[in-house]
């Protein structure tokens, strides 16, 4: 008999569900998404799983494999040789069905971020060294695995306090663009809640695009907020000049994890 992999796939919807075991014939180089497609085509045609490109370019197939947020198209079955592979939907987002979750909140957040406001018309004169800094952020495929793993969103349900790592990367992309003239620091300090992040770097660890989210996006953004609102000299100047209201320090602080 041909060799098989065993998968335990969460099946259900908003009202509840449980893991169901499936056996799938082994194929060289198989990824978890291949195994799920086999199940879908042959065993359970209504198995819901989002995917588009199957080449780690689109970021549609985020889920949790043996408890770890992963892209299903990039996770090899042979990484789990001899184990039952558990596949569950991303925990942070409400389930629609099986492995498909409602990620619409992310699209609402995206709308809150002011777009690039160039100070000069294109064509821009920009050196590669300046482009390098932001191009890292442009690699993001919006798989939302960082959002899924972020403690503020996952464990503390802090959607009303923090936009999450994905959108820190997006804000960083505009803020650090050499030609941008907009000011997103008040947004970061208040609605976007950059202070909520307590730098555990879990988002960086799960990023399939290897973006150094915490080091290169979040920490520099935190510094901008600190410079504006917590610089002791500026605080003193503000107090003396009485311009308090315009630059009120944000009230949110990070949560324990």
């Amino acid at each position: 008999m041909a060799e098989e992999f065993t998968l335990s796939v969460w099946r259900g919807d908003a009202s509840g569900g449980h893991e169901v075991e499936y056996r799938v014939p082994k194929e060289t180089g198989m990824v978890v998404l291949d195994a799920l497609h086999y199940i879908q085509h042959n065993l359970a045609p209504d198995l819901a799983v989002r995917w588009n490109c199957k080449a780690a370019h689109c970021g549609s197939c985020g889920a949790e494999v043996n408890g770890v947020p992963k892209l299903l198209c990039k996770t090899r079955m042979d990484d789990y040789a001899g184990q039952t592979v558990s596949v569950r939907p991303m925990k942070t987002f409400p389930v629609i069905k099986d492995l498909v979750t409602d990620v619409s909140w992310n699209y609402q957040v995206a709308q809150e971020i002011p777009p690039l406001a160039p100070t000069v018309p294109a064509p821009f004169n920009m050196q590669q060294i300046d482009a390098d800094r932001v191009q890292e952020f442009h690699r993001c495929i919006e798989c939302f695995l960082c959002q899924d793993t972020c403690h503020v969103l996952r464990d503390h349900h802090g959607r009303d306090k923090y936009f999450g790592p994905r959108f820190m990367v997006k804000i960083a992309e505009f803020e650090m663009h050499p030609m941008d003239g907009a000011d997103r620091v008040p947004l970061l300090a208040h609605e976007a809640g950059v202070n909520m992040c307590n730098v555990t770097k879990c988002c960086t660890e799960v990023c399939p695009q290897h973006i150094r989210i915490t080091d290169n996006a979040i920490i520099p953004l935190k510094e901008r907020v600190a410079d504006r609102y917590y610089d002791p000299v500026r605080m003193l100047l503000r107090r003396l000049s009485g311009r308090k209201k315009a630059a009120d320090a944000p009230s949110s602080t990070s949560v324990a994890t």
């Binding site: 690039l116 821009f124 004169n125 590669q128 482009a131 932001v134």
Partner: peptide
């Protein structure tokens, strides 16, 4: 393409700082 650049796309650059 220039429109795209002004909307936020960051293309690779030439040594002169133009779009590669």
């Amino acid at each position: 393409v220039l429109e795209l650049e002004s909307w936020g796309a960051v293309f690779d650059r030439t040594p002169e700082g133009r779009i590669m």
